[in-house]
Nucleic acid binder design. Structure first.
Length: 489
RNA sequence: CGGGGUGUAGCGCAGCUCGGUUAGCGCACCUGCUUUGGGAGCAGGGGGUCCCAAGUUCGAAUCUUGGUACCCCGACCA
């Protein structure tokens, strides 16, 4: 374990990379743009995944799995969707290698093994799924169809960043079919709420729920709903999206059902997803210059026990009892009995790993019936009675969870700035950072122009925003509602 | 796809300008002893196709040419 990471104030993006590498969350791989998720990082992802999966099932969804490959003919069926992803698709053209006659021991693509039809490695699965749904859906009795899949997808990005944008990433994608537009829109919003409940409740990261402007909409969607989170450097991160797909895919794949009146109708669709990008959000949300800071609900180890100043049998026994006691309370606890590392090293290491609570077990304190409890979020240390430690820790974990949220919430609130003219807008985007809440005329041209001039993009039209009329900060044309702008990841 | 950077031990680097014993340093690793309430000390030890290929040369980590990989910054995107 290395000793230091770059300070946020010095180089935020280097800090982010250092943190991931040194906390052992992920690593670069031999494949350009692809990363290895290491056990500690994957443990966090598993906690996120398990919770989301539970929430999907509680809202009536079932898991299924669809193929990695999508035949080109299917992929291109929904034109807008296909166009939107065309530039970043990996394509399988051959199905066999052979030994290279010119280079002994080397392999080459067998030119005789060219596929009749290329296979697209899924950048998203609407095409293959809707092609399947055609066979699954015939009657209104088959609806709604509520399916989710956990999968990997590939988007051949020009520029990648650990967790935030990699060529291959893990995600879940929900794909639902409904009899009416109203029902589909309700589903879209319901899942957006599941996402915001998860991100706020488990990741302790406040989000703004909103609707994307047409320019930022998912290719093939009629409407895209989003949750936008704010990172410590003032940049926004789109953390989850939920799409109302209208009848676009139903029409492209001829998915119809017979309604109660015995007439054919196209079904209405939604899709929604969150990815390992959430890991990036989690890392950036709370961490500091000493390392990761994890919310207790998503910490692989919620409590670590460290004997001080060194490991001996008596301390080991106390530690074992303590471990059992905490586990009894449902707390994820790690008892570190490693004799080869000294306490100071362990303290620093578990701070790097973001473990919310550390308990030092030392002879001196034990003689007084006390334990030293340190919390990662505020770095406070307190002597706490050995008796009743488990309930103390349990309450402390809850306190840390809510403190992290409160802290992030106040950061977010302080970084949503209402602006009323171009100078204010520019000043916020260039100097203060965060969201600029501004009127604009709603046209693509203006959106493009704003991006060109300031690098800021329209993040969303907040769902709870007031319908307040005003004038566009750039063109002076009328506007019906304010939109959140920010520089984004 | 443009611009920049870097490839030398697991990691971080020096050496290269000006070619010359056995390629070095820190961290990590192994062994031993001593230590031990915030990243231990000492001693000993192991570990290298110097990114690849071709060329120049008596001799290449070092010079030349070509290739390749990854990272960073931009445009594109979750």
């Amino acid at each position: 374990m290395a000793k230091e990471i770059t300070a946020r104030s010095e180089d935020y993006s280097k800090w982010y990379n250092d943190l991931i590498l040194k906390a052992g969350l992920a690593d670069y791989s031999a494949v350009k743009g692809c990363m290895v998720i290491k056990p500690y990082g994957f443990a966090i992802w598993e906690l996120m995944r398990d919770q989301l999966d539970k929430m999907f099932k509680e809202t009536g969804h079932l898991n299924a799995y669809f193929p990695l490959f999508v035949p080109k003919r299917l992929f291109e069926a929904e034109e807008k969707n296909a166009e939107g992803f065309a530039k970043e698709c990996a394509v399988v053209t051959h199905y066999r290698l052979k030994t290279d006659p010119d280079k002994p021991g080397k392999l080459m693509v067998d030119p005789e093994a060219k596929l009749e039809e290329e296979l697209i490695v899924r950048p998203t699965s609407e095409a293959i799924i809707w092609n399947t749904y055609r066979d699954w859906i015939h009657s209104y009795r088959d609806l709604p169809l509520l399916i989710n899949q956990w999968a990997n997808v590939v988007r051949w990005e020009m520029r990648t960043r650990l967790f935030l944008r990699t060529a291959e990433f893990l995600w879940q994608e929900g794909h639902t079919a409904h009899a009416t537009a109203t029902e589909a829109i309700e589903e879209t919003v319901k899942m957006l709420n599941v996402y915001s409940d998860f991100v706020e409740g488990w990741m302790a990261l406040p989000v703004v729920k909103g609707v994307k402007t047409p320019g930022e909409r998912f290719a093939g969607a009629d409407d895209t709903y989003t949750i936008e989170a704010l990172m410590q450097d003032g940049k926004a991160l789109q953390s989850g999206t939920s799409h109302f797909l209208g009848q676009n895919f139903a029409k492209a794949f001829e998915v119809k059902f017979l309604n109660k009146e015995n007439t054919q109708e196209y079904v209405w669709a939604t899709s929604w997803g969150v990815s390992t990008r959430l890991m990036g959000a989690l890392i950036m949300a709370h961490s500091d210059d000493e390392g990761l800071v994890l919310p207790p609900k998503l910490a692989p180890h919620q409590v670590v026990l460290v004997p001080v100043p060194f490991v001996n049998d008596e301390l080991l026994n106390v530690m074992k009892d303590l471990e059992a006691e905490l586990k009894q309370e449902g707390i994820r606890v790690k008892a570190d009995s490693d004799e080869t590392k000294r306490p100071g090293f362990k303290f620093a290491e578990y701070e790097m790993l973001g473990v919310p609570v550390r308990i030092a077990i030392g002879m001196r304190d034990l003689e007084k019936g006390m334990l030293e409890v340190a919390r990662r979020d505020t770095k406070e240390k307190n002597l706490v009675p050995r008796e009743g430690i488990a309930s103390y820790v349990k309450a402390l974990l809850e306190e840390i969870q809510s403190n992290l949220f409160t802290r992030a919430k106040s950061f977010q609130q302080n970084n949503i700035t209402i602006v009323n003219n171009w100078d204010e807008f520019k000043d916020v985007i260039e100097n203060k950072g965060g969201f600029a809440y501004a009127h604009y005329d709603g046209t693509q041209e203006t959106e493009d122009k704003i991006k060109e001039l300031t690098q800021a993009t329209a993040r969303c039209i907040p769902l709870d925003g007031e319908k307040e009329s005003g004038v566009c900060i750039l063109t002076g044309k009328p506007s019906a509602q304010r939109v959140l702008f920010a520089k984004a990841y």
